[in-house]
Write a protein that binds this DNA or RNA. Sequence first.
DNA 1: GCCAACGTTGGC
DNA 2: GCCAACGTTGGC
Length: 159
Amino acid sequence: MNYWLMKSEPDAFSFEDLKARPKQTEPWDGVRNYQARNFMRDAMKVGDPILFYHSNTNPPGVVGIAQVASEPYPDPTAFDKKSKYHDPKSDPVKPRWILVDVAFKADLKRLVSLDEMKTMPELSEMRALQRGNRLSITPVTKDEFQAIKKAGMRKAPGT
DNA sequence: GCCAACGTTGGC
DNA sequence: GCCAACGTTGGC
């Protein structure tokens, strides 16, 4: 089992949006970065836990727990000329972009902010926190995952 | 294969 | 809105 952190801008698609989906599941479309694609294509397994992270918001941070909900399959938005994610270099015969479905798993009692994560000794090596990292999908270790989940299940930071 | 130009991400 | 970081593109 692998653990993941996946970023989303809440203005575009939030954790609340995921919960509000009829089956609480959403295809993670629009990823146009090869490293992030490779994680979905090669390393994710159905049931892998995901830290759902809100970026480009105030404050940024982990807002909830999701999980991988499908095998990898081609990103249909790449073939859709009307989609903002359209990529003429991807075609159904030889798809370039691959995604998985992501499903709601559990709420946290509160947001675990980026600021707070930076203070947590368990997260000092965490890939998503490294300087300059912009990957929208990164692996996290089991210990990192559990430290963040535990913090999010407490009512207030540090208590 | 190099690298300058350009585009995007995301914290602030 | 700014800008550092970094990925991609394309000329050579």
